[in-house]
Design a protein around this nucleic acid. Structure first.
Lengths: 137, 137
DNA sequence: ATCTTATTGTTTGATATTCAAGATGTATTA
DNA sequence: TAATACATCTTGAATATCAAACAATAAGAT
């Protein structure tokens, strides 16, 4: 049973990855920019270290990604008085718009996924995911 | 509700990606090699085009990945009599072993994920994933 | 106050990943 | 046989990533 569940999980992840690659490829964004945007869209301001942690990459990598987001005018760095080492990253208007657009694709995918489930199953699925997320990640 | 589910799904995917990156980084494999291994481990023989499709990348990309798997002695190309254009990729003994090892990590993660669920919830979760996989991906 | 250590972020150099477009060899069809 | 389709590989370019070294700033110890 665990074996079967593992296989469904892998299939699920692969499906999602492929789907995400294809929608990102059809946009202005690269994959890493899109991932950064996903995090930035959920935070008013976030520093490089936290952003890197949430993305699961090093700060060096994040520096490059944010450089590109700035160059494309999706985000900008702001400095703080409290700690002058820290950069706070914020989305520009253009960035917020791109985030919304990208996020809408996610909601559409969710809609498509759950279209075969009953409301009860959807609620169960949500609760299970939430439990797993809290305990595992 | 869809919004919340979308967020849990994204968190779930990100968590899984980070986890996978970290276990792969601690092994002999690179990410793309590991993904190829996951597919190869489930097939006795598979040609380049199918492998590429299952990985969601172009055949050009797959060529490079399989080159490296061959160089590392995890897999080898076999030609067929039926169609001499086609390469069938098979795992070597070393490759099978690497697959098993990698797969065990996945099972361990599954185990960890479901450790907070009841057997009934696990079954529900499995069935839901299966339905979604069949309909969506 | 100053010296040491820790932290945040950037840079650098190397490797890996990926795609699109074109090339090559093989099969299929007209 | 000629034309077309197909499977794979090659090439060139853009991205993605890490580890390690670096610079600036903050925090703690004496």
């Amino acid at each position: 049973m665990r074996e079967e569940l593992t296989n469904e999980l892998l299939f699920f992840f692969n499906g999602f990855s492929s789907w995400e690659n294809s929608i990102v490829r059809a946009s202005d964004l690269t994959i890493s920019e899109a991932h950064a945007l996903e995090v930035l869209g959920e935070h008013e301001k976030i520093n490089m270290k936290s952003l890197a942690q949430k993305l699961g990459v090093t700060t060096g990598t994040t520096t490059v990604t944010v450089d590109r987001l700035e160059k494309k005018n999706f985000a900008k760095r702001e400095s703080t008085q409290e700690d002058r080492r820290v950069n706070l990253i914020v989305l520009t208007e253009k960035g917020k718009q791109a985030f919304e657009e990208h996020h809408n694709y996610h909601i559409q995918l969710t809609e498509q996924m759950v279209s075969v489930l009953s409301e009860e199953e959807i609620k169960q699925f949500h609760d299970t995911l939430k439990k797993i997320n809290m305990e595992t990640f």
